[in-house]
């Protein structure tokens, strides 16, 4: 592929990716939202996180078993209120150990 064509593709992708990020930020911020919409947006982070995690987490490592091991460790650490950094390191460490041992 030629560089000029690649540049054109990148610019096109950049524009169509930026617009959905930008428009709500500019148009919604000052409005007082109706209470139904406010509740709706309250729940968005939880729904987005859940659907990002499941079921893709199962296929994020070399084998589902190691992903489950790491995921459970991360879950345990998060449940005990550990710092996010340790949750991530613990999860990665769990996968590493599992794949080293089994």
């Amino acid at each position: 592929m030629q560089d000029s064509q690649g540049l054109l593709l990148v610019l096109g992708m950049a524009v169509v990716t930026y617009l959905p990020r930008l428009l709500p930020m500019l148009l919604l911020s000052t409005d007082k939202l109706p209470s139904f919409l406010k509740r709706f947006f309250d729940f968005v982070p939880y729904a987005v996180l859940t659907t990002l995690i499941f079921p893709e987490i199962l296929f994020s490592t070399a084998q589902p078993a190691s992903a489950i091991a790491g995921g459970l460790i991360a879950f345990g650490l998060a449940y005990c209120g550990q710092n996010l950094f340790f949750v991530v390191v613990g999860g990665i460490g769990g996968v590493f150990l599992w794949e080293l041992l089994f």
């Binding site: 992903a67 790491g70 995921g71 998060a78 991530v88 613990g90 990665i92």
Partner: peptide
């Protein structure tokens, strides 16, 4: 697993 562990956290 890093990003998924973060999501869980």
């Amino acid at each position: 697993l890093a990003l998924y562990a973060m999501f869980i956290g």
